[in-house]
């Protein structure tokens, strides 16, 4: 319980650092760190299959994508980023408070009603659930993957020169 609490606090602090840091490169690394900490939480909760995927894909692949784009673009200079951060904090300081208060109200309402959804009886193996009970999800995943490949091809195809 105490370990769970520490890891969850670390996750929130990392996410906060990711959002508040001025450098986009550091933000990408913070995102990778947050994914790695989420992996720890998943292992701790017994979701080892999802944890491995989270570590390899979300902590590995997606930050690489972000860093590639950052290297191909021109980020703000340090001074511009500092000015932007100050103006952002001045404009939106109240926003996190509103969202947190709304979230706490929602959590309290859900605790008050005490109407948990009945848990469906499913086998213990995630592989069995994925391959035998949720085939429609797999079909959706395959369609999304093909859609993604098609999207990348369309985005990066070489345009024909007009005659």
């Amino acid at each position: 319980m105490f370990l769970d609490l520490i890891i969850l606090i670390l996750l929130v602090l990392t996410a906060l650092w990711t959002v508040m840091t001025r450098s986009l490169l550091r933000a990408s690394l913070g995102l990778a760190l947050a994914s790695a900490i989420l992996t720890l939480i998943m292992f701790n909760m017994g979701a080892s299959l999802a944890a491995v995927l989270e570590l390899s894909v979300c902590a590995g692949l997606i930050p690489v994508l972000f860093i590639s784009v950052i290297s191909l673009t021109q980020p703000l200079t340090f001074k511009e980023a500092l000015e932007h951060m100050h103006s952002r904090m001045a404009r939106f300081w109240v926003l996190p408070l509103i969202v947190i208060i709304l979230g706490v109200i929602l959590v309290l309402i859900s605790v008050k009603f005490k109407a948990p959804l009945p848990a469906a009886q499913t086998p213990d193996s995630a592989r069995f659930v994925l391959w035998h009970l949720r085939q429609f999800d797999l079909l959706g995943q395959i369609i999304i993957l093909f859609g993604g490949v098609f999207g990348v091809v369309v985005l990066f195809k070489e345009r024909k020169k007009s005659a």
Partner: peptide, 28 residues
């Protein structure tokens, strides 16, 4: 019901990767 939760998380991760790849391409 961790097995079902894991199956759903796997689907979320696959969708996340595809969405991010396309979004990064659009941003570029």
């Amino acid at each position: 019901n961790m097995a079902l939760a894991q199956a759903m998380v796997v689907s979320i991760i696959v969708m996340e990767v595809v969405i991010m790849t396309i979004a990064v391409g659009v941003v570029l």
